[in-house]
Structures are given as structure tokens and as C-alpha cells.
């Protein structure tokens, strides 16, 4: 089988996340494969961002957040006591919902990561390489010294992707990267993702079902489980499969309702 040959980058095993005493997501079992785009979809509050943030330990920044179960990265427990979250984030980059360029020049935005991490090599080449990979070079090559805030929203988001690429990660996590963008910028970023998956493993959270259908190789559908008693809202993974299967012939009725727009 083709599947067996694939490399599992992440394996979530019975993974759960608490915020303080409230359970936000429970018993997630999910493999994420190398050089694929995996989409996390589902209604608001079902824990997509929570799961995504647990993949590069950005959850550590929320004092009340606590991850249970196992998050394996290439078979290694990412929450082991010997794992430094800073090292994790060097290898697993993240792009946020709202473009968040640094209040610096375009050049310095890209150079910040490599400089901070003490990467070797010619900085001009690193910057040019990252901007080219993010399909932004032609847009900005004549104004590298300009402030990044002067770019359009779509360009800013591609700059954030370029910034993440510049530190040469293995994985790029994206939390609704296009939700603040117009359709044309969105298509550009989707094209870019298709290009980038040759070199990186990508996990994307999206509310846009067409987007998941267009770009993702695999899709995981989450929902909010309200059946566990009064007022409890626990995010659960309903199913995950190849995207075509999820959108044409899902195994769970809840998935079908969601992808056909009956719910959510």
C-alpha cells in the first residue's frame, strides 16, 4: 500500500488539552505525513487552533494549557522532560491568522530569525532565497529596506511565510492563514502552499471548506461534543482521511453534514 510507505511526521496518540480545569480537546488520534498538506477543519471552538498550537509547543505560552496523551514527532515524545520548546519551534514554524510582520524593514523581517538563531551563511542570500521560495521576491526586490507595514495584507502574510521558511524548518503550521485576505491573495497563498509541500510538511487550519478541498492531501474533521453533560464543550476528532474521501464519501454522518453545509 502507498500509505505504509509514508513517513509519519507527527503522531498524536490519545492526545488531550486542558485549559485550567476545563477539557478543550480529548482523545485525538491523528497521523500527519511528510510532504503533505493536512487540513484541520470543523466548527468554531472545536479545538483546531488548540491542536495546532500543541504541535510546536506554542501552547506553553498559555500558562493554564496542559497537554495530555502523546504528541510524537518522528517518534519522539515532544513533551518529554528533556525537550526544549525553543528547539521545537526552530524546527516547526508557524504562520498566524492575522499577518504579524515585525515593525521593521522587509529585509529585517526575514533576517531576524536566521540572525537570532545564529545561522551561518550570507544573509543577503538567505533573505533572497526565502523571498523567492515564498514567491514574493519579484514584488519586493526593489524595496527591501521599506517597512513591512507598507505591504498589502496578502504580501504581509507571504512575508510571514517567507520569514518562517528562512530558518529552514521541517514543518510549517498555519492557523487560518487566509481568513484576513481577499480571494486573489488567498489563491496566491494556496499556490504557494502547493509549491512548498515539496520541501515541507504543512498543517493548516481552515474554515474554508473549498480551501481544504483544493489544497489538502488529508483532512481531519473535528467537532464539539456536547453530549458529555451539562455545559461541557469538548472538541473531538470525528475522522481523518484523504481529502477526496472526506468530501465525497465520509464515514461519519456528522462529517457529511458539515462538508455539505448542513451544519456549522
Amino acid at each position: 500500500m502507498e500509505q505504509a510507505a509514508k513517513n509519519e511526521v507527527f503522531s498524536l496518540k490519545d492526545m488531550s488539552v486542558h485549559y485550567g480545569s476545563s477539557l478543550a480537546v480529548d482523545s485525538v488520534n491523528l497521523p500527519i505525513y511528510e510532504n503533505e498538506i493536512t487540513a484541520l477543519i470543523g466548527p468554531s471552538g472545536c479545538g483546531k487552533s488548540t491542536v495546532l498550537r500543541s504541535l510546536n509547543r506554542m501552547n506553553d505560552l498559555i500558562p493554564s494549557a496542559k497537554v495530555g496523551g502523546e504528541v510524537l514527532y518522528h517518534g519522539q515524545d515532544m513533551y518529554g522532560s528533556d525537550v526544549d520548546p525553543v528547539q521545537v519551534r526552530k524546527v516547526i514554524g508557524m504562520v498566524f491568522q492575522k499577518p504579524n510582520p515585525f515593525p521593521k524593514s522587509i529585509y529585517d523581517n526575514i533576517a531576524f530569525g536566521p540572525q537570532t538563531l545564529g545561522m551561518k551563511g550570507n544573509m543577503d542570500e538567505i533573505v533572497e532565497g526565502a523571498l523567492k521560495q515564498a514567491a514574493l521576491w519579484d514584488d519586493v526586490k526593489d524595496r527591501l529596506k521599506d517597512n513591512a507595514f507598507g505591504m498589502s495584507g496578502g504580501q504581509q502574510q507571504r512575508l510571514c511565510i517567507a520569514r518562517a521558511i528562512a530558518v529552514k524548518p521541517d514543518v510549517i503550521l498555519m492557523d487560518e492563514p487566509c481568513s484576513a485576505l481577499d480571494p486573489i491573495s488567498t489563491f496566491k497563498i494556496e499556490d504557494l502552499m502547493m509549491e512548498l509541500k515539496k520541501d515541507y510538511t504543512i498543517v493548516i487550519v481552515t474554515h474554508n471548506m473549498q480551501q481544504a478541498a483544493r489544497v489538502a492531501d488529508r483532512t481531519a474533521f473535528f467537532t464539539v461534543d456536547t453530549s458529555r453533560g451539562e455545559g461541557s464543550r469538548v472538541g473531538t476528532l470525528v475522522e481523518h482521511d484523504e481529502t477526496t474521501k472526506i468530501f465525497s464519501n465520509p464515514s461519519d454522518e456528522r462529517t457529511l453534514d458539515y462538508v455539505t453545509g448542513k451544519f456549522g
Binding site: K90, P103, T116, R163, A164
Partner: peptide, 27 residues
Amino acid sequence: VPSSLLDGALALGATRLQAVRKMVLPA
């Protein structure tokens, strides 16, 4: 200073001290 600035720096693998010194304090 918006937390997205700190998050952005941390997400690149900067330590908290680096992110604070190079991003938050100048801002």
C-alpha cells in the same frame, strides 16, 4: 505592544529573552 509580535518571534525559535529584547522592548 501586541502579543502577536512576541508570538511571531517565539514561533521562529527565539528564546523569550531574545524575543523581548529584540522585539518587545524596542516597540
